[in-house]
């Protein structure tokens, strides 16, 4: 089984900064996107079960070594990093274009991605990639069960009322959620082995995408303005004994018509 996991390097949650008014600062301290780690874990478990190889694919204008190294330390066989200064400012459509172009150069039965990312939170890159490649798109997966013999994959998809079980022929694209399970903590042995693993660095030319079709100039979306959220204030601290505290909290919620 060959699995490609789309792995985005995002600013450390809680430390996000904007530059130039609206652009996410990617100059330092990038980590693997949380949702991507859940699908990575699910993929690693499938490889352990069925054999095969898991490759991560990252697109990022700046080096994203920490995020990629961690994925390799967790057990990914190798990594591909599409890195090109021209990528800066790309919107979701451009990102989908580049990732699908890179995927055309890779072999896979399944492509995994997190449901969304902690910086952009668009949640549509996966669908864009799947439609460009003509892959079945299985979203909000809480469980992923491929059947290599039958050449199909079955996914438990979370819906508002419960879950749906959907099935598609492979190759297919699966967007996963936190419900797939906690990602493993890389062992030191894994960290050391990761140093020997291949990180292929591809440019736009390598994947056959014109620099003019990506980046902020080519983006279809335009950011009018960006405002950081107001600092959290007025936190309400309940310091009562449990029984009284519970009462206070209920009162508080009731006063806001939340219960």
């Amino acid at each position: 089984m060959r699995i490609v996991v789309l792995l985005k390097a995002v600013p450390v949650v809680g430390n996000e900064k904007l530059v130039d008014g609206w652009r996410v600062d990617r100059s330092a301290g990038l980590e693997a996107n949380g949702n991507d780690e859940y699908v990575l874990e699910a993929g690693l478990k499938l490889i352990e079960q069925h054999g095969g190889e898991l490759v991560t694919l990252t697109m990022c204008p700046t080096p994203a070594m920490e995020a990629i190294r961690k994925a390799l330390a967790m057990g990914a066989a190798r990594a591909v990093h599409v890195q090109d200064p021209a990528l800066a400012g790309s919107d979701t459509l451009a990102t989908g274009l580049v990732l699908s172009a890179a995927l055309r150069k890779l072999e896979y039965d399944l492509v995994f991605a997190g449901a969304d990312t902690s910086d952009g939170q668009g949640g549509i890159v996966g669908a864009a990639v799947a439609s460009r490649l003509g892959l079945p798109y299985l979203s909000y997966a809480a469980r992923i069960e491929p059947d290599p013999g039958a050449g199909t994959v079955r996914v438990r998809r979370i819906s508002a009322t419960g879950y749906d079980v959907i099935e598609a022929p492979m190759p297919a694209f699966v967007a996963g959620t936190q419900l797939l399970g906690e990602p493993r903590y890389p062992s030191l042995r894994g960290i050391m082995q990761a140093r020997q693993k291949e990180i292929a660095s591809w440019t736009l030319a390598d994947v056959g995408v014109e620099p003019s079709s990506v980046g902020s100039a080519a983006s279809q979306t335009e950011v009018d303005s960006a405002t950081p959220p107001p600092p959290r204030g007025g936190a309400t601290v309940v310091r009562e004994a449990p029984e009284v505290a519970a009462e206070r909290i209920v009162e508080f919620l009731a006063s806001r018509r939340l219960v």
């Binding site: 204030g233 007025g234 936190a235 309400t236 601290v237 310091r239 009562e240 206070r248 508080f252």
Partner: peptide, 9 residues
């Protein structure tokens, strides 16, 4: 008064 719901530590 420290008891009760107070506005922020």
């Amino acid at each position: 008064a420290r008891a009760g719901v107070e506005g922020g530590s």
